[in-house]
């Protein structure tokens, strides 16, 4: 390290961020505010949602007009957010479904930023997924003697994983082939749709009160600097 760099060293270096906040008399207020913001982000899906196509930015919804995003820029934003708001040293990323592709890419781009990656509903190969789904749904159509679907599958022959229109056409009915637990959960969402939609997603105070999101919970989630 050069002399110039040494002279710029913070006089507080060596102390923890929590100690700094206590010295400044801001610890309690910051803890409360930060925790509310973190929980709000988690509930709102902001931190994660910005990295998810599924958060209202799906191809299925927008087709060729799907908003294009730079994963690199998103990562930089997320890194700043985590470091400035959550004060965590490292993060565990959980990637689900299409988000698992994004998650794995994040690990490739910035492995040092993340302590671990967890994939669930993990995509491996899109072609493989399309082929398996096609086969499964075709079998289901034959089993149920659904002539329209059988003709549709026969017309397609071999699915083209790069043909989005074709995929979204034949995969319209995958829910019937889903695991019973998935079907039940999706149905429960439909049943509660009006309640969920009526909720105020920007006011988390009642949620915080119910959840008792205390500092002890926080310490279980992540260690602070």
């Amino acid at each position: 390290m050069s002399q110039t760099q040494k002279s710029k060293k913070s006089p507080r270096m060596g102390g923890t961020f929590d100690e700094f906040l206590r010295e400044e008399g801001m610890y309690e207020a910051i803890q409360t505010t930060a925790m509310r913001r973190i929980l709000a982000m988690q509930l709102d899906g902001t931190a994660v949602g910005k990295l998810m196509r599924g958060a209202g930015h799906t191809y299925g919804r927008y087709g060729a007009k799907t908003p294009r995003r730079s994963l690199w820029k998103e990562l930089q934003t997320m890194e700043l957010r985590l470091r400035s708001i959550c004060f965590v040293d490292c993060t565990i990323v959980l990637g689900h479904s299409w988000g698992s592709i994004v998650g794995v890419r994040m690990m490739q781009l910035r492995p040092g930023l993340f302590a671990a990656y967890v994939g669930t509903g993990q995509v491996a190969s899109w072609k493989e997924s399309v082929d398996m789904q096609f086969e499964l749904l075709q079998e289901k159509a034959q089993r149920e003697d659904h002539q329209t679907s059988i003709k549709q599958f026969n017309d397609i022959g071999n699915p083209d994983p790069t043909n989005a229109q074709q995929y979204f056409t034949f995969s319209k009915g995958p829910r019937g082939a889903m695991a019973p637990s998935d079907q039940a959960w999706l149905q429960s969402l439909r049943d509660r749709a009006s309640t969920l939609l009526a909720g105020d997603r920007h006011n988390f105070q009642n949620v915080l009160d119910v959840m008792d999101f205390s500092s002890s919970v926080r310490s279980k989630c992540c260690r602070t600097r």
């Binding site: 479904s97 698992s100 690990m107 492995p111 040092g112 993340f114 302590a115 671990a116 990656y117 967890v118 994939g119 669930t120 509903g121 993990q122 995509v123 491996a124 190969s125 493989e128 997924s129 398996m132 789904q133 499964l136 995958p174 082939a177 889903m178 695991a179 019973p180 637990s181 998935d182």
Partner: peptide, 19 residues
């Protein structure tokens, strides 16, 4: 980095075997 896959056994959307 540490890499985990925790997959539902009956996943047909992103097939379990492939994952």
């Amino acid at each position: 980095t540490a890499f985990f896959v925790i997959q539902g056994r009956e996943d047909v959307v992103t097939p379990t075997k492939a994952a």
